[in-house]
């Protein structure tokens, strides 16, 4: 056998393998969607018949709608708070370059790298001390800690895209710190900030471990409710709720993809 034919065989194998891996990556997620429209209470694929009964049951139960709204009520403030703090951190680290900015940036990045279970068991006693355990502010703070580095990374990337001379120019022209940020810096990093905010919301919307420790039955999020239900029984209601969450995640994913395409077009011109 020559190098040529064996090379061609290897290439065919590589393509088949890659397609198989990509299917493995996305297939399980989408198996859930048809199940949520099943007419039977047991899970089988493909479903024996179709109906919307599980969506109806889900809406009629009070815990699912409540958990859904809780997730929104927690995710939106998390996105706003972590976008603000993450953007400030990125500005300070990327533009600052002063003595001590490296250890400070390590503190900013670290929450994303360490296992969340440690943060969860560390935050719970502190939140309990302040009477915030189980409250909205408690879990919002917990999620914000991990979302700050997410925003930091996307905003820092946008800041590195252009030279600080724009900010110096604004300042020599008479703009103070706030005016410089609002009129010059922010318009130039806007896409990074918005993408960071969406990432933060998505993280909070999907997060389980912190929510497990810092929410109460009244403030519990959708992932926590799913988790609690999963440990008891696997019914198509969970599939319906999951499909709903998937829809929201993919709308946000699409928004980010469009924003990034817009950004890459803008930087190319």
């Amino acid at each position: 056998m020559t190098w040529n034919t064996s090379g061609r065989l290897a290439r065919i194998f590589l393509v088949v393998f890659t397609v198989a891996v990509l299917i493995y990556l996305i297939m399980p997620t989408f198996v859930i969607v048809p199940m949520s429209f099943s007419s039977k209470s047991y899970l089988s694929f493909p479903p024996p018949g179709w109906s919307l009964q599980w969506y109806q049951t889900m809406m009629e139960r009070h815990d699912y709608p409540q958990a859904f709204w809780n997730s929104i009520k927690i995710g939106v403030p998390v996105a706003l708070l972590s976008t603000t703090l993450g953007t400030l951190a990125a500005l300070g680290v990327v533009r600052g370059r002063f003595f001590g900015s490296r250890p400070m940036s390590a503190v900013v990045i670290a929450p994303l790298m360490l296992p969340q279970i440690i943060l969860a068991i560390g935050l719970y006693p502190i939140m309990a001390k302040f009477g915030l355990a189980g409250s909205y502010p408690g879990v919002v703070i917990g999620h914000t800690v991990i979302c700050i580095p997410l925003v930091f990374i996307t905003v820092a990337a946008s800041l590195k895209n252009y030279h600080p001379a724009y900010e110096y120019a604004a300042m020599t022209l008479g703009a103070n710190w706030w005016q410089t940020f609002w009129h010059v810096t922010f318009p130039m990093i806007r896409v990074g900030v918005i993408v960071g905010g969406i990432l933060a919301f998505t993280f909070s919307f999907d997060e389980l471990i912190i929510a497990l420790f810092l929410t109460s039955p009244e403030t519990r999020t959708l992932p926590r409710l799913l988790w609690e239900d999963l440990r008891q029984y696997v019914t198509p209601i969970i599939a319906s709720a999951t499909t709903l969450v998937l829809c929201i995640s993919f709308i946000l994913f699409g928004a980010v993809a469009l924003l990034q395409r817009h950004l890459s077009k803008a930087t190319r011109s």
């Binding site: 997620t29 999907d206 389980l208 799913l226 988790w227 696997v234 969450v245 993919f250």
Partner: peptide, 16 residues
């Protein structure tokens, strides 16, 4: 796509 899908959901899918 999997990046944007909750770990709870993906684990649930495997359970199914």
């Amino acid at each position: 796509v999997p990046f944007w899908t909750s770990t709870v959901i993906r684990t649930y899918a495997w359970m199914v």
